[in-house]
Structures are given as C-alpha cells and as structure tokens.
Design a protein around this nucleic acid. Structure first.
Lengths: 115, 115
DNA sequence: TCTCTTCATCGTATATTTACGATGAACGAT
DNA sequence: ATCGTTCATCGTAAATATACGATGAAGAGA
C-alpha cells in the first residue's frame, strides 16, 4: 500500500489522464462524434461544421491523433479522417473500469457542508 | 443537420469536455481512486500519498471540486474530502453514453496510412 | 492565551493550450 | 507548367495550467 511520497504515477493513471486530456475540449468531443457519425470525413468538412478556423481544427485533430483516437488517410490533396477503432475500444473499456471502481468504493460520504 | 460554422458547442459537449478536463491529470485520476478506496480522507493524507507539494494537491482538489466530482467537509482544522456520488454517477453515465455512441458509429475505417 | 496542526490562498515562475492569419507543400485538373 | 484546392505547419498572442514556497486563517489542545 501507501505509494510513498516520492513515487511517480502508474502508467494506467498516466494513460487515462492523457486520454481525458484529449477529450477535454468541446471541439474534440464534437469531432469524435462527427467522425463516428460520418464514418470518415475530410478535414475541410469538419472545419465547416465547427466554429473554428482551419488551423485550429487542424491542431485539435493533431491532439486526437497524438493519443491515437483518430487517424488520417492522405488522399491526394485531401485528408480523410476517421476514428481509430482499436484505441477507442481501449479508452472506452479503461474508462469503464475506472468509473466502475470509483462507483464501487464509496457508500458513505462526508456531511455535505462543502468547503 | 450541419451545425453551422458560427454555432457554439452544445451544453452536453461542454459538460463532457469539462469533466474530461477535471480528469486530465494523473494526480486527479489518482485522487479520485484514493478517495473512493478510503471512502473519505483528509487533505494531509492525500498529500502523503502523492508526489506533490501540499499547495499543489490543494489546487488539484479545487479543480475536482469545481466540477463537483468531490466535496470537502470542514472538520475543525482538517478537511475531510470524499467523492460526490451524484456527480460521479452523472459523469459515469454521460461518458458511457458518449462512448457507446462513438462505438456504434463506425464500422468502416480509412486506410491506415496515418498522416 | 499561546502553540501546533491543517489547509486554502497568494505570489510567482514556467510550460502548455488555444486561437488565428499567413505561408507553403502536395496534389488534381486544366 | 500553371492554377486552385486542401491541409499542416509556423509565428505569435493571450489565456490556462502546473508547481512550489510563503503566508495566514481556523481550530484543537495545552
């Protein structure tokens, strides 16, 4: 037990935090939704569907690619983006497990005198 | 359809992104785990269990309180922290629904020639 | 009252994130 | 070869996030 003061975080904790970071902006939440609904979609279409400039959308796509939640397929001058099913699966089950464990733990709570 | 260029994000998208942001740091992932395992726990205990200074832990607790995932009960000079079950429930089901929808969408993917 | 403990907040430094316009690379079409 | 389209990257500005030491408030216990 007790994970001493100097210890680092576990890989699981880091991975989960990283995945959460990738989803920590409304634009990226929406991009994932759009890509999943449309199966695949060009960057330009996403730009049209989002209240953001093209450069900004490209940056958000980069962040989602960083954690592997999406992938981009170069198709001539266009780039076709789509969800990376494998990574999405892993992230889904990891979050599921995490939340399940959290919900298992506590039955008792402190008095609701929030500070 | 089509969510015009100028439209803002929906409340759902913003809420989900905000919850993800609260969990986007390994320390906060771990704090939620610790609080759930121990049912409730003083700030000082958390400081001992994390590789971070007291001021930093306090900041992370503040971020988790901001979205309502935890609450703090003032008990004399100490503060007893615990998971806020209601918010955790909502966040859990919201993420579950989000991921379920994402996983529903795509069967087809682009060629894996990642850019 | 004085002291010790507990914790939030302040001040501050540094790093990261977010956003945009401008540029340029890559390609299709003419 | 030239032009238009598509998109990543660069440069940059402003805002947030992360981390820590120092300080101070609040209460317990002497």
């Amino acid at each position: 037990m007790a994970t001493a003061k100097t210890e680092n975080f576990t890989n699981d904790e880091i991975f989960l935090a990283d995945a959460a970071k990738a989803l920590s902006h409304p634009a990226r939440i929406k991009i994932m939704k759009l890509l999943s609904e449309m199966n695949a979609c060009m960057c330009g279409e996403l730009v049209n569907l989002l209240p953001l400039a093209q450069a900004t959308v490209s940056q958000h796509l980069k962040e989602l690619k960083r954690v592997g939640l999406i992938q981009g397929d170069i198709d001539g001058p266009k780039v076709c983006y789509c969800v990376n099913v494998d990574t999405l699966q892993k992230v889904t089950t990891d979050f599921q497990n995490y939340f399940n464990n959290l919900n298992k733990g506590e039955k008792i709570s402190c008095k609701p005198k929030t500070n």
